[in-house]
């Protein structure tokens, strides 16, 4: 009953996922670009980043949000969008192992920055119920991701909005959803040409109407019952299950056993202890935790480790 009391019918929610440090500025630009354009149309808007995802770390999943409404926004001071109409993935491997579709509204649209087809991308998502369309846009061929620390933590971004891959991705969002007028967005972003390319060249795959899966949330009482004394936890002896990081990876290390001399340099330099020296003088990689930083590959003196895009692997 109380759920229906608080529905905001004129409200659209956009949730953008990106990789920390390297793409969080572009994630921010997408939500700021869309809301600035919507504001020109007289809409009520709010754009923000997920405070708990910050400080962002290189490759960690981070989120940015937009609310665009015909009415004054009532759900202003929340951490996340609870029911996105649009989900955007700024980096393609985020279709693997992340709960990007949790809580979507029935009929939501997913936009993914990828050179792959929507069909291929869909294969990684698992349960796509609730989505009405899946869109891919090869934004990296139209622009480059912008990295800057300016604009972080609520300060002004001195580099402006929409010069990077945010422009073509936002263009694809507009093409697939019509959430704002493309001309208004063009006036807001610094790279309108890239924006137009994203608008024109994105690939849209329509899906059948289905109901999204229900997400069960843990209650405060359950948290209290599970809370150890003062939050103190035993020290892990194998790995830390509280922060499994394999889903950070955009590329995977592959060993060429012929070239490997067992020198151990990749092993000593892995910050995440994800390299194990084996008895046969080689190494194995812990893919449950490997973040794909590529230090192993970069430091290997015999070029025995190469980095391969993560989506080339089905597992």
């Amino acid at each position: 009953m109380s759920e229906s009391l608080f529905i905001e019918p004129g409200l659209q929610q956009v949730t953008v996922w990106a990789r920390g440090v390297l793409m969080n500025k572009d994630a921010r630009d997408i939500v700021v670009g869309l809301t600035e354009a919507a504001a020109k149309e007289g809409k009520h808007v709010q754009a923000w980043e997920n405070y708990v995802d910050l400080p962002d770390r290189i490759y960690v999943p981070v989120r940015a949000y937009a609310k665009i409404s015909t009415d004054p926004i009532e759900s202003r001071y929340v951490y996340e969008n609870d029911a996105p109409d649009v989900v955007v993935l700024v980096e393609e491997t985020m279709v693997k192992g992340l709960a990007v579709l949790d809580g979507i509204k029935p009929g939501a649209v997913l936009v993914v920055n990828s050179r792959r087809s929507p069909e291929e991308v869909r294969g990684f998502l698992g349960d796509t119920s609730g989505l009405s369309a899946l869109v891919t846009v090869d934004a990296n061929s139209m622009s480059k991701a912008l990295m800057t620390l300016s604009g972080a933590e609520g300060a002004t971004d001195a580099t402006g909005i929409g010069a990077g891959i945010s422009a073509p991705i936002a263009g694809a969002v507009v093409k697939a959803t019509g959430i704002v007028k493309i001309d208004n967005l063009a006036n807001v972003v610094k790279n309108p040409d890239a924006m137009k390319r994203g608008y024109n060249e994105c690939k849209i795959m329509k899906l059948e109407k289905t109901q999204p899966k229900k997400i069960k949330k843990i209650t405060a009482q359950e948290r209290l019952e599970q809370l150890p004394f003062a939050g103190t936890v035993p020290s892990p002896q194998v790995d830390n299950r509280g922060m499994v990081t394999g889903s950070w990876r955009t590329q995977r290390p592959i060993l060429d056993a012929e070239q490997c001399t067992g020198c151990g340099i990749c092993w000593i330099y892995c910050p995440d202890a994800c390299v194990t020296r084996t008895d046969d003088g080689l190494v194995t990689f812990n893919l449950e935790f490997c973040k794909g930083c590529a230090l192993c590959s970069s430091e290997c003196p015999t070029n025995a480790v190469t980095m391969v895009p993560e989506l080339d692997f089905k597992d």
Binding site: G20, V21, R57, I58, Y59, V60, P236, Q237, V238, D239, N240, R241, G242, M243, V244, T245, W248, P271, D272, A273, C274, N286, E288, F289, K291, G292, C293, A294, L295
Partner: peptide, 9 residues
């Protein structure tokens, strides 16, 4: 051990 929210690299 493996498993911490530090930057890749």
């Amino acid at each position: 051990m493996p498993g911490h929210r530090t930057c890749a690299g």
